[in-house]
Structures are given as C-alpha cells and as structure tokens.
C-alpha cells in the first residue's frame, strides 16, 4: 500500500475545514456596524484550507519519504507502539467520567494508582509502592489547593453522602 501519512492528514484537515466553513454560515449577524462575527474565522479557515491543499499536493507530488508501511497499518503493531499513550488517554477519560461521583481526592488517588500500576507493572511490591505514592502525592496536592490556595475541588457524591 502506497499511502502517505501527510496525504491522509491533509484530507482529514480539508474535511475539517469544510465542516467549519459550512458551520461559519450559521454564525448570526446582529446587524451592527463594523466587522461581522464570521469575517475573521472565515479568513482563517480559507487560509487553512489553502495550506492544507498545498500540503496535500506536496504529499502527492514529492518522493515518498513517510509512506505508511505495512507495520503502521497492522493494528497490533499500532497498539503496541502507542500502548502507554492509549492507557493514559483511557485512564484520564475514566477519571473525568467518574469525577462527579468520586471527587478529586478519591478520583485522583485511584487515577494515579491505576495509571502507575498499568504503566509500571502488577507485581505485589510495586502495587504497594504505587498505592503509597498515589496517596501521598494526591494527598499533598489536594491539601495545598484546598487549604493553601482555598480552591474548592470537586468533593464527589461519595464523600458528600458520607
């Protein structure tokens, strides 16, 4: 397969520009004098579209230097290459999704503990170390922000009921 990464990115960005330009037609015009609200975004999107087109043409015309090889399209290889980044994404999404229920203190401890264990390994000694690290670090940060900087961090429904 002889597809270049830049070609795919340029097509994706052109699609993005198309959707946003289409959406810019929905920007309301209150009829005031002066520059319309849609003027500046339209200029930016038009320039962005032109640059994406240049990138697309360049990626098609130039010699293949960043072709997608079979290793890049193999899902298993992609997974192992980005495994740790994907774990971070996933753990962060879970942390955010449950933030309202768990709050920043419990949610933060569980997030750090979970991420440390997923990235660092599941041996008992490490798990104990990860648990201690997560409690101490989040405890310190939570205390600094709550008592030192007077920030009201999300308490979470669990602690509220308790």
């Amino acid at each position: 397969m002889n597809i270049k990464k830049d070609t795919i990115v340029a097509i994706f960005l052109l699609l993005f520009c198309g959707i946003m330009i289409n959406s810019s037609f929905d920007i309301e015009d209150p009829g005031y004098q002066g520059m319309k609200a849609s003027f500046w975004p339209t200029i930016v999107l038009c320039l962005l579209s032109i640059m994406c087109l240049v990138m697309l043409i360049k990626s098609v015309v130039t010699e293949a230097e960043n072709n997608i090889n079979s290793n890049d399209t193999n899902l298993t290889n992609v997974f192992f290459k980005f495994k740790n980044a994907l774990i971070c994404f996933l753990m962060f999404v879970i942390f955010l999704a449950f933030l309202d229920y768990l709050g920043m203190l419990i949610g933060g401890v569980l997030f750090v503990f979970g991420l440390l264990t997923m990235l660092g390994g599941f041996e008992l000694k490490k798990i104990i170390k990860h648990f201690i690290i997560s409690i101490i670090t989040i405890g310190i940060m939570w205390s600094i922000f709550t008592f030192g900087l007077k920030v009201i961090l999300p308490e979470g429904e669990i602690l509220r009921i308790w």
């Binding site: 971070c88 999404v93 942390f95 997030f111 750090v112 999300p154």
Partner: peptide, 29 residues
C-alpha cells in the same frame, strides 16, 4: 512513569483551579 502519572493528575487539579469548572479539564485533555 511515576513522575508522568503524578504530574498528569496535578495538571487536572491545576486546570480545575483556574475557573472551578470540570469542562476546563476536558479541554486540556
């Protein structure tokens, strides 16, 4: 990995402290 995990959590707390809205953490993510 220890530093990164702790700092990721710290980023979330720090960003929340800006306007006290969870939406800001989603924006950061």
């Amino acid at each position: 990995y220890v530093l990164a995990s702790v700092i990721l959590a710290y980023c979330a707390i720090g960003v929340f402290a800006l306007h006290n809205v969870v939406f800001d953490i989603w924006v950061m993510f």
